[in-house]
Structures are given as C-alpha cells and as structure tokens.
Nucleic acid binder design. Structure first.
Lengths: 243, 243
DNA sequence: CAGCAAACATGCGTGCACGCAAGTTTGCGT
DNA sequence: ACGCAAACTTGCGTGCACGCATGTTTGCTG
C-alpha cells in the first residue's frame, strides 16, 4: 500500500505541484507576496493559470503549502508511533509539538513574510484544519471503534487548540472570519497566565485543557490490554493536570 | 452599553442589512439558489451590487444569515443565564442545544434548500465559528480570569463539536425536494454509540466527550464561592461522565 | 445654524475561482 | 503494438470579492 510503482502520471503530477510550490514561494520572497499573481506563478512553473487552480484552490495555498507540506500525515504517524502504553493525551501533545517545532522553513525570510500578511496568515491557519481527519483516524484507532465519534470530536478539539496556539503565537495582529471579540481583553497583568512566547509552550498550554477529555475517553473506552495480551502499564491515566 | 438612541444611521444600516437578508432568502427560495446573483439581491434590496459586499463577504452569507441571525449572542446569553451552581459543561450543552433546536426557519422550504446545496451548507457550517468568541467570553467569566486561555480552547472545542454534530446531522440530507430531518434512528442495543438522528441528540453526543475537560477546568480554576459570598453548591463537578 | 469630519453608498477596475468544453497525454487491456 | 477510456491540461466565459476614488448623508460641535 505504498505505491510499488509510483506511476509516471502521478510523478508528473507531484512534480507540477512541487514546481508550483517552489515558484510561488520564490516569487513571494523576491517581490512582495502582493506583487505575485497567479498568472506569474503559473508561468514560472510552466503551466497555464487555469491549471494552477487545479492544484491549489487559492492563491495563498501554494505559498503556504511550502511550509505545511505533508504535516498532516506526519502528525498522524507521530501519534501512531508512540508506544501504546503512554497516555493518549501525551502522545497527541508530543506528536503535535514535535511536528510544529521545526517549522520546516528552508528560508528564514519565509516566516516573517507569512506572519505579516493577513491573507497568508489566514491561509496558514487554515492548514491546521487538515490535521483533523488523520488525527481522528489514529485516535479512533487507540480508542477502539466504539469511540469513533468521540475521536472525531477530540481531534477537532486538538485542531482548534492548535489553531488558537498559532493565533496567539503570531499575534501582533488578529481577526479572522466573523467579528473579533476584542473588547474586555486581559489588560490585567496577572502573571500566571501562559508562560508562552515559544510555540511549543503555547501548544502545550493550549492542549492541556483537553487532556482530561482524552483521559476520560481512554478510560471508559478501552479497559483492554496491549497488542500482545500484556496488560498495559499506563503512565498516569488520571490525576492533576500538568503544568 | 445598549445604544440609548440607536441613531438614525445605525437604523438605516440595519434596515439595509435586513433588506438584503430578506431579498436573498426570498429569491433563493423562489428560483434556485444558484439562479440568484449578487446583482439580483442588490437590486431587490434597492442598493448597488457593490454595497452588497459591504454587508456580506460572500453571496451565501446573506441567505444563511436569515437562519443564523444573532445566534452567537443568544448562546452566550443562554449560558450566562444558567444559575452559577450547575456544571459548566451542562450549562454550555443545554444552551447550545436550546439555541439549535428551533432552527429559526420561518419558511420550511428554507432548510432543505440549505442542506442541499454544498455552497450554502458550507456557509451555514461556517457560521458556527461565530459562536466561539462569545462563548469564550462567558466561559472565561465562569472560570475566572485565570482560565482565560483555557476558556478559549474550551470554546473552540465546543465550536468544533457543534460543527461535527451539524455535519453529521445534515449528511443524509439529499434530493431536490423533500428534506425530512431526523428519521434514521438508533440501531439496537449493542452500541453505546450515538442514538443520533435528532439534532439535539447529535449535539449532546458530540459535546459529551468534552465534559471532562470542562469539569477539570472548573475544578482547578475556581475553588471560590458564588457571587454573594455564598459557597456554591455544585451538581457533581466530577464523576463518571453522563450518558 | 453653519460647517466640518467621519461614515457610507456607489462606480470602476483588477485579479481570482471555477464550470464547461475541447485537445492532449497516460495507462491498460487485448 | 494498437487503440480505447480515463485522467489531465488548457482556453474561454461568467460571476464574484474587494481596493480605490468620489459623491452624498449623518452626526457633532463651535
């Protein structure tokens, strides 16, 4: 199930996709991202403008995809890779943190560029939605099929938490979708809030509140044993939440 | 903070918004929703097409907004209205269910119409994102200011759960004419799965997995008392999760 | 009441997303 | 090798979102 012969057609397709990615990123860095039209990207990649939209639904997606690439699959794999004994919440948290720590930016000019422009910022945030389905799958895997719906909700929760963490991380600007709350904001200097600043810190902080939900789901959906019939040794399925 | 004199300008603005809503809905029902252009809506409302986009960012928003109206504020208010003693998870769940049970569709031809067309369906689902900010605010209210970030995450989790519930709810919807909601019922007893079919059922099922997270947040963020200094009597902040 | 500044409606122009209907390439069975 | 069907690319046309500049309305203040 790993594409024994990748097939010529599929390879060309991926090549085109990659070419568009590269072209979009390069042009966006060279000129401003606002000075790049779809037509330019397509031309640089050697395809027609119309074809561009067969690969990317929006102008920003190509640029952002250079950063996100196949992060979805990576996160799912990272979760699946954790030994079955660890707390699900921990497995997911670490997998997410791991995949977001190295932003995968080849050029250090890229990140400031994305965080600056609102359109790119939004497109970047939208990519987090992509991790939901794979996550739901691996979570359901661990929860057993009885928790399929629960897995979906938990995965969605994780996705939402990640989105919030990212929003906070690249803050100095804000607002997406509908109206922004904004009014009664935390001007009060309560220091015990998030120690944040670093992305990993924010991610952990955002995911922490969901841990009890994972524990509960895990607890009441699988009082079973490990893959070899060995009773699983758990690392604290419950208890006070960390940090 | 309730606009003592609403102001003439603001009234006109709301009137225009309402006119656009009504026109969009009416035209969408009369002809198919695909046979309505922004230009038509604008004309029917007596404004220019350009003005339409000053009120709604997309063509579908106007149609859908007839259903969603001010649901965001209603949910927040509903949560705030619950007595302080009840479990936060219950308060939120009930508030959400309450606001989504009466879909607020004046015309029964409207719902089938929205559930059918993918574009409208997506636009409708997008509106759920709007409840996040108000929800976060009221949740933060109950959690105390120390849980502000937690509140955001929980609110986002609720939003995601609602979205999933809605997706599942209007999945079996299809066909041109008849759109009967809530028919396929729970299979027999093997499953503790969801008995779903009805929207309220799906909402509760989707929100249930998050309850432990609410409990934990509530537990460790506010060992305090009620608004009048009276120790709050809680309805089981912890314990096995219901249903 | 006069006048000014902000908010708003509107026209115009640009770039974009996407359906549709060809033309072209790839994969596969015979 | 051959040829067909599906997949892909491409040009074209339509409707849409939105920035910008301008004329008009509203609300406020001296």
């Amino acid at each position: 199930m790993t594409t024994p012969p990748p097939g010529l057609r599929e390879r060309k397709k991926q090549a085109t996709r990659e070419a568009l990615r590269a072209a979009a990123l390069r042009l966006a860095v060279e000129r401003g991202p606002d000075r790049v039209r779809v037509e330019d990207i397509a031309e640089a990649a050697g395809v027609s403008p119309r074809t561009y939209n067969n690969y990317f639904a929006s102008r920003e997606q190509a640029i952002v995809s250079a950063l996100t690439a196949d992060r979805e699959a990576r996160i799912a794999a990272a979760v699946a890779a954790r030994p079955a004994g660890v707390r699900l919440a921990d497995a997911v948290t670490e997998a997410v943190v791991e995949q977001y720590t190295n932003t995968g930016a080849p050029d250090h000019r890229v990140l400031p560029l994305i965080t600056t422009r609102p359109a790119l910022r939004d497109a970047f945030l939208d990519t987090t939605a992509g991790i939901e389905a794979p996550l739901a799958e691996v979570i359901a895997e661990r929860l057993g099929d009885v928790g399929e719906d629960t897995a979906r909700v938990l995965a969605a929760g994780v996705t939402a938490a990640v989105r919030i963490a990212l929003e906070g991380w690249l803050r100095p600007a804000g607002g997406a979708g509908a109206g922004e709350a904004g009014s009664a904001e935390s001007s009060a200097g309560g220091g015990l809030v998030v120690p944040s600043g670093s992305l990993p810190g924010r991610l952990r902080a955002a995911l922490a509140p969901l841990a009890p939900a994972f524990d509960a789901a895990e607890r009441n959906a699988r009082p079973r044993e490990g893959p070899a019939g060995v009773p699983v040794e758990r690392t604290r399925p419950s208890g006070g939440r960390p940090r």
